[in-house]
Design a protein around this nucleic acid. Structure first.
Length: 389
RNA sequence: GGAGGGGUGGCCGAGUGGUCAAUGGCAGCAGACUGUAAAUCUGCCCUCUUACGAGUUCGAAGGUUCAAAUCCUUCCCCCUCCA
């Protein structure tokens, strides 16, 4: 049996749990973190470096790979695992997030009403019942992504875990739009599932996505929908609110209604505090661009630091001979000083971004290891205090 | 010796009578970033002030003018070309 999910321990006081998640490319322990390699690359890191930093599973994106190099090319090259030389478990996102982000900007832009003035041409053209029409930001060519084509592309990419197409609903829409959008995502879910079942070769399993914005009744309805269908796993998506507390509420309002035997993924979330909070709502896997993105922007994630991190570009680190985090076992912290990495950022050497990416990836992996251990030993509160001040 | 060009805020470099505390870029100081169109973006960046605002600036010193970085005079310093 190439796929299975087994809950190995349940926290008596919350929905928190540990699990063992088996895929054709290996078994991972949960809760775990899935690193974003959107365009078949976790930016700045080789698969070997990811492994060395303790990573178990990575993710790639249907939309971006559809534009370039195209699913047929990847299939011709032996599939995404072989193409990018990652032999572990792999997840692909469906492109649902791009329906949102290419139409509305990023999460922060959308929630804050896009105050930064930085207008990009919209590259999403139209969303209809049939699917979403895009104009490629690469060459302007038109693409039409449907639930069926999203599954077909993901089949050609060949990740272990794939996702139904959904519309990632923005925050700034009213309830009736959110409800209509959710209903369409459900129909897209059925179509995705039908297309997946039609070509099922036993090598992939599919996630259904919970939508419903910040509304408890809609979230419940969406959870019940995914649970009633033959998805292997559940992902929580869509607008999770305008601030962290609201996000935790939205995830928590799903917990009672999500299929309890299936793995649960929370899409796009990944700070320390977010992991602790959402694990208690039963989240088994997370993914987030933040660890690798903020690394490229000079931020090191640090256990127990104020705001969970330090800005290595700050002048105070120019002559600091200590490692980024003396308690961190990663190769960056074992071999390099804050002073050196600060210097690399100052002069724009890409090694700086790479060293911090290694550190942040290793730190997320350490976090997840400690969270798993904490759940098993019922010490989640104490471990959280070590990580989040 | 002759002819010409130029000296602007840490650097490069606009501006050639008022809308100039002075465009830009770089450097500097901070910040944002959550299913990645992100090695991106934002703010600050003479002094004092939270801000309003005030005070000193455009090689130096005088002068013309209601008003000068911009015009005139002298001086100092740099560069190019011809000898």
């Amino acid at each position: 049996m190439p796929f299975s999910f087994t809950v190995t321990h349940k926290d008596p006081n919350s929905y928190a749990r540990t699990g063992s998640y088996e895929t054709p490319h290996g078994t991972i322990e949960t809760p775990n973190f899935i690193f974003c390699g959107t365009k078949a690359s976790v930016k700045g890191l080789s698969p070997q470096q990811l492994r060395e930093a303790g990573s178990d599973i990575i993710l790639s994106n249907t939309y971006h790979l559809m534009l370039s190099p195209g699913p047929d090319l990847i299939a011709e090259m032996g599939g995404l695992h072989k193409f990018m030389s990652w032999d572990g478990p792999m997840f692909t996102d469906s492109g649902g997030f791009q329906i949102f982000s290419l139409g509305h900007g990023g999460v922060a832009d959308e929630i804050k009403g896009r105050p930064q003035g930085h207008v990009r041409p919209k590259s999403i053209l139209k969303i209809t019942e049939e699917g979403a029409a895009f104009r490629s930001y690469v060459d302007g060519k038109h693409f039409f992504l449907t639930p069926e084509s999203a599954v077909d592309i993901q089949r050609k990419l060949g990740a272990d875990l794939i996702v139904q197409l959904d519309e990632c609903t923005p925050f700034h829409v009213d309830k009736s739009y959110t409800e209509k959008s959710m209903a369409m995502s459900m129909r897209w879910g059925d179509r995705s599932l039908a297309e997946w079942q039609r070509g099922d070769d036993g090598k992939q399993k599919m996630y259904g996505i919970v939508q419903g914005g910040v509304y408890p009744d809609l979230r419940k309805e969406s959870c019940e929908y995914t649970a009633s269908r033959d998805f292997f796993a559940t992902a929580i998506g869509g607008s999770l609110g305008s601030h962290k507390e609201q996000m935790y509420e939205v995830v928590a309002m799903c917990s009672p209604w999500i299929h309890p035997d299936r793995p649960v993924h929370l899409l796009g979330i990944g700070s320390f505090i977010d992991v602790f909070s959402n694990v208690r709502s039963g989240i088994d896997t997370f993914d987030c661009v933040s660890p690798t993105r903020i690394a490229r922007h000079g931020w090191a994630m640090v256990k127990g630091a104020p705001k969970e991190r330090m800005n290595i570009r700050n002048a105070q680190y120019a002559r600091d001979a200590d490692p980024v985090d003396a308690t961190c076992p990663c190769t960056t912290c074992k071999n390099h000083s804050r002073s050196y990495i600060h210097h690399l950022f100052r002069v724009g050497e890409m090694l700086g971004m790479q060293l911090l990416s290694i550190h942040n990836v290793a730190t997320m992996n350490r976090l997840m290891r400690e969270v798993r251990q904490a759940i098993k030993t019922n010490t989640l509160d104490a471990v959280q205090k070590e990580w989040v001040v």
